Simulated scan of single mutants.
Amino acid sequence: MRPRRRDFARALLRSFSIQGSWNHRTMTGPGMAFALSPLLTRIHADDPAALDAALERHASPFNAHPYLAPVAIGALARLEHEGEDPDTLLRFRSALRAPLGALGDETMWAGWRPFCASAAAIAFLLGFDAVTAAAGFLVVYNLGHFALRLWGLRCGWKAGRGVGAALRRVPFRRLARVFVLASQVLIGALAAILVARVPGGAPSPWIVGVAVGAGLSGYVVPRHISRVALASLLVACVAWFL
């Protein structure tokens, strides 16, 4: 049977707890089975033995970035719905692990999260109280996070076995690079604000460290020294001299 919209909604909500049963042996495997359960229950509604086998199959070792795990959930549910044999499902499941982990780390951990954190820090230094700045970070960051999960589930179900090609059509690495560069600009601006606030015009060692870190952050992008980061360091130095 084809899953219903409420089954997808339940799977999406369960994906937020995919790391709740993480362990060194199966990693997020049990969480994947838990998230897939509403979809598998609908797909194998007339065959309890097939449902048990599917749950056991998807509880096997699996690991990927948690925000992109819904891509795997949707794609695997689609293959289960199309009646793929267990060996194909397991090979396909294994092939998804590394790409989803790498794309998620680059886009979210190295790009989106530092960008949101830097923006929140600047907002605090510009006069927003700590609660407002922290709340702003949580709201903006999680809007992007939730949108990625929702898109991933839809993409996985729609693409099925062609999910690899669907992922290649999305410029994840370009987005990650944009967020990294934007974060470096914000770090440079943050350093400039801190330097400008030093009483007596003499920067303390930790402020110098922040300014230098803004320049060195250009090495975050592999094989690329960001001109933006170096320009940010220059801005911090100019602010100190002024």
Rank of each mutant, 00 (worst) to 15 (best):
Y67M: 07
V221E: 15
A189I: 15
A166C: 05
L153F: 03
S204D: 14
P99F: 02
W109Q: 09
A77I: 00
A33Y: 02
R168Q: 11
S217G: 08
S94Q: 11
Q184M: 14
Y141N: 10
P199D: 13
H145F: 14
G209N: 08
W157K: 02
L242D: 00
E106G: 04
L230W: 08
V195Q: 03
G101M: 13
G101P: 03
R4H: 08
R42T: 11
W151D: 07
L167R: 09
L242Y: 14
G162Y: 06
A9I: 01
L39E: 04
L79D: 01
R93I: 01
G215Y: 07
F137D: 04
L76N: 04
A59G: 10
M32L: 15
L230V: 13
P38Q: 04
R4I: 02
A229V: 03
R113H: 12
M27F: 14
L96R: 03
L89K: 13
R227M: 11
D129P: 10
A130F: 00
I43D: 04
Q184R: 13
P171W: 12
G188W: 00
T28C: 10
L125P: 02
G20Y: 00
P70Y: 03
R177E: 08
P3M: 04
I122E: 11
V163Y: 03
L242W: 13
F115Q: 06
S226G: 05
L36M: 12
V238Q: 04
A121L: 14
R149P: 00
R173D: 11
R78Y: 02
R5V: 13
A231G: 06
L100E: 07
G74Q: 09
G127F: 02
G127W: 03
W157I: 07
R14A: 11
V170L: 15
G144H: 06
D7N: 13
A95K: 09
F172N: 02
P66Q: 06
L51T: 06
V220R: 10
I187V: 14
N63S: 03
L40A: 04
G29M: 09
V140R: 08
L96M: 15
F115W: 15
A231T: 09
M32I: 15
R149N: 04
H24T: 08
M32H: 12
A159D: 05
L148E: 04
A134Y: 05
P70A: 08
I207Q: 11
A35L: 04
G160C: 02
T88V: 08
H58N: 12
G144C: 06
G209H: 11
R113P: 05
P38V: 08
A123I: 00
G162V: 07
P114W: 02
M32Q: 11
D105E: 14
L181C: 00
E84T: 14
T26S: 13
L79P: 01
R10V: 05
Q184K: 00
P171A: 03
V180K: 13
V210R: 05
R5G: 10
P3F: 10
A130E: 15
W240C: 14
A77S: 12
F62D: 03
D105L: 13
P205H: 09
R25G: 06
S204H: 09
F137I: 00
R91H: 15
I187L: 15
A117W: 04
L138V: 12
R10F: 12
S226N: 10
V180Y: 03
